[in-house]
Simulated scan of single mutants.
Amino acid sequence: MAPSPQDYSVTPTPYPAKSHTTSTSIKGVETVATSISFADKILITISQHGRLAHWIHVPLDISATDASLTSTPYNDQDSDDDTPPSDLLPLHHLTATTILGGMVPELGVLGQTIATQIASAVLTRDPGEKRMVVVGLGLDASMSGRKEFSELVGLVLGVL
């Protein structure tokens, strides 16, 4: 028996979905970042050479039963310490999972790290955010360095 129309709920959302795009050159490679905010997901793509080869998702809606899952290790420390501020570190309770692609090992780790950093930035901006973050990447193999990571994350922060 097919479900009746009363079994579905419709959530009104703006159409078209809110989106932002920016681009820059990283290590001489044109890099385009786009964010699209859907009612149930935040989609971020980072593309080089017009490709998307690795898809990762990070659920933000966790049901933590332990305060250690949702707190950061630096919350209780004085601001004059030499420890890094917690908003620069990815939140340790977030888990990035590859859902499609990601066959190049060094780019797989980079992709999951970038996805976790992006999801952390989303939660830092809005701690009540519950939508899933989906990240699509199409990165050149030369992007696995620390400097490139910082530039990629900075580019994405510009579209969030």
Rank of each mutant, 00 (worst) to 15 (best):
A53K: 00
D61Y: 07
T21H: 05
T45R: 08
A121C: 04
Q117H: 09
P85T: 13
L157T: 05
H57D: 14
R51M: 13
M143F: 07
M1K: 00
S86K: 09
K27L: 15
G145F: 05
L69A: 08
D80C: 09
G101V: 07
G108L: 12
Q48N: 01
T21K: 05
E30K: 05
V133I: 11
L89A: 08
V10H: 04
N75E: 05
L152S: 00
T65S: 15
G111D: 02
G158K: 06
T24H: 09
S25N: 15
M103Q: 14
L123V: 13
I36K: 00
E106D: 15
L91S: 02
G102P: 07
V29R: 02
I56E: 04
E30W: 03
L100K: 11
G128M: 10
Q6E: 14
V29T: 06
I56G: 00
T21V: 15
L88A: 13
P12W: 14
S79F: 14
A39Q: 01
G102V: 11
G138A: 06
D7K: 09
A96P: 14
R125F: 08
I46A: 01
A121E: 14
A119L: 07
Q77G: 09
S63W: 08
T113C: 13
T22Q: 14
V153M: 06
L89Q: 04
L107E: 07
M103L: 12
I44R: 02
P73V: 12
S86M: 11
A67C: 03
V58W: 01
V135T: 10
T113N: 15
M103E: 13
D81K: 10
M143P: 00
T72N: 08
M103I: 06
M1G: 10
K18C: 13
V153K: 02
P59I: 08
Q77D: 12
L52C: 04
K27S: 15
A67D: 07
H20F: 11
G128T: 09
L123A: 07
L91N: 06
A64C: 14
S63R: 11
G50C: 01
K27P: 10
G128H: 14
T24S: 12
G138N: 05
G136C: 08
L107V: 08
